[in-house]
């Protein structure tokens, strides 16, 4: 008891001089440190409201002379709505499938013995590490022979079986290992089969990990650039990351006002989701580093 009191006293003593000047200095330092991270994003929002000429004025000038004109032009003059749908469709398929495969494979790796399991698990770990870009060439030749280039099929499939997919399996396995076996036994006594135990007992206990997997899969799908660059040539077939580079004049010059308005439309849903669920986002993404 006494030692506790002493150490608490020592701790208090260390913090006692409240020194408001130091606190203020700390806030100023923190604000300065944050500038290079947030200014580019703020600049994107501000500049998306400026005209093609106005954008070249003072970077943080408040001459938002275009209003929302850039945004209407992005949809009126370009197949941007179609490209937005392509991205949404890709995401709507690849994210739930990634979650489902990660949950089933993760459960099998964690709880069931089957021949080849350990080899398969080591392969999954390797797939998290080896850059998927390495195998782009044979993948491309295969999809080309199947006449699937310029479709979303290779994009979706390669998102599901990407390093993110492997990480998802790994995260699910690490989670299922921690659940007590008694839960499964209780389920079996109640007459559930393996699928029933998985569906009605294990999955409902996995919501936080599934949320993590979903966040990874959404970001992976929404930001995917490498494979769309290889496979998609038609403007109408493109997904958003490629679409952002299509606001150009015939000589290859960029219409920056339109590019930035489109960038806002691509970034906004993700940034809003992040603002609404900051803790979940940060903890989920940090989990990749601490558990991976």
């Amino acid at each position: 008891m006494r030692t506790d009191a002493v150490s608490a006293g020592a701790r208090r003593a260390e913090r006692l001089p409240a020194r408001p000047a130091w606190t203020l200095l700390l806030y100023v330092l923190l604000a300065l440190v944050c500038l290079p991270f947030v200014l580019p994003i703020l600049w994107m929002f501000l500049s998306s409201l400026k005209s093609a000429q106005g954008i070249f004025g003072s970077p943080f000038g408040l001459n938002v002379d275009a209003g929302l004109k850039n945004f209407t032009q992005v949809f009126a003059g370009y197949p941007f709505a179609r490209q937005y749908l392509n991205s949404l469709l890709t995401l709507a398929i690849s994210v739930p499938v990634t979650m489902l495969l990660a949950a089933t494979a993760g459960y099998a790796f964690a709880r069931m013995r089957f021949p080849g399991r350990d080899v398969a698990f080591v392969m999954t770990l390797a797939a998290m590490m080896v850059p998927a870009e390495l195998v782009a060439i044979p993948q491309f030749i295969a999809f080309k022979n199947l006449h699937l280039t310029n479709t979303l099929v290779p994009i979706i499939l390669l998102q599901i079986f990407s390093a993110t997919g492997a990480l998802s399996v790994f995260l699910m396995r690490q989670h299922f290992i921690t659940l007590p076996r008694e839960l499964e036994e209780a389920g079996r006594i109640d007459g559930l089969g393996t699928l029933g135990v998985f569906r009605y007992i294990m999955l409902p206990l996995s919501r936080p990990v599934l949320a993590t997997v979903a966040i990874f899969a959404v970001l992976n799908s929404w930001n995917d650039y490498f494979n769309p660059l290889i496979y998609l040539n038609d403007e109408a077939k493109m997904t958003l990351p490629l679409a952002l580079q299509r606001f150009t004049d015939p000589l290859g010059g960029t219409y920056w006002n339109l590019t930035l308005a489109a960038s806002v439309l691509v970034a906004l849903p993700v940034l809003l989701a992040f603002l609404m669920a900051q803790r979940t986002f940060i903890e989920s993404l940090a989990a990749s580093g601490t558990k991976g």
């Binding site: 929404w222 930001n223 990351p241």
Partner: peptide
């Protein structure tokens, strides 16, 4: 916040 920004 840049971590969640689309890279393109």
């Amino acid at each position: 916040s840049p971590v969640v920004m689309p890279i393109v």
